[in-house]
Write a protein that binds this DNA or RNA. Structure first.
Lengths: 161, 161
DNA sequence: TATTGTTATACTCTATAACTATA
DNA sequence: TATAGTTATAGAGTATAACAATA
């Protein structure tokens, strides 16, 4: 998300010779995958900006939010839910722990597993962060009616669920 | 995309204690960004699998497809269109060149720029790859009607364009 | 024997700074 | 002075193999 688009380019002429400023993207824009990625990229850029205030990346937010609604979830469950690999969750969890946002408690009847819980500080942070994300989402889907937004989400879930 | 989901988990009981297999993801699933990413991930996994036959990654396909419809486009134009940074395009382009898929010709009236063109081999490959991608897209959006698919794409574009 | 969490490590993707040659 | 393309490099993000403790 760096590329600075030019002013406008008075084209309409030389598409054939390929020297116009804007390229013909009709093929790519006919693909669900391409559009989903672009939309995600647009939202996630704003997401990343706003979350720096909380010191959270996207995965961090996902993990904390999941723990807010699923106290005692294990690393394994988080990995399965978010499609991330166990080794890549370790440092994330231990950072959250160091920051005093989460707590690790031994699992009641599985000695291998560790239950993860938000601390009061963690809960307060998630509450704020979730509010910001909802705000941000409303801005991002500003050009959609509430009904269109629901439809969009429903159709996206039809693709991946 | 490695996490292997369990058989099913006969839960419905202990959501409160957080020991059920599946986690409550309703918060995340209410977000456009989250759903767009999941949908893209689902499509892109299949995409990556099928494109190995052509030795192409996602970016490779985007670049070749753009060149098919925009002969003579420059690196700068590709970067602006696909939101990739110039340094990251260099090795991609030079690999395509080595593979005999594209050709670099000096730009007619800007000595700094280089026009990029598909070779006949490149054109043949793109034709095949584009057919495969369209097939794959239809499979991925199998659970959508043609009308729903159009709606989905239109709404996604409303978010990022 | 399989699973949870972990370490170490490698590979890919993306980003930044600085150079060259043209404009 | 600014832009197109390039080099080198640094930092995220994602992946694999192997281990200890527990089931």
């Amino acid at each position: 998300m760096t590329a600075a688009p030019r002013k406008k380019a008075a084209s309409a002429i030389a598409t054939q010779t390929g020297r116009s400023e804007r390229l013909d993207t009709r093929m790519l824009e006919s693909l669900v995958g391409y559009n989903a990625r672009r939309a995600w990229l647009a939202v996630s850029t704003v997401f990343a900006e706003r979350m720096t205030a909380y010191g959270l990346k996207q995965v961090d937010f996902s993990v904390l939010s999941l723990l807010a609604h699923n106290p005692g979830a294990t690393s394994r469950q988080l990995c399965a839910t978010l499609d991330i690999l166990p080794p890549n969750l370790v440092s994330l969890i231990s950072t959250m722990d160091s920051r005093g946002l989460i707590e690790r408690r031994p699992h009641p009847y599985d000695g291998r597993a560790i239950g993860l819980y938000l601390t009061p500080a963690g809960e307060a942070l998630v509450r704020e962060a979730e509010r910001t994300v909802v705000e941000l989402e409303n801005e991002a889907s500003e050009r959609l009616t509430a009904r269109e937004r629901e439809t969009l989400i429903r159709l996206l879930q039809k693709v991946y669920r």
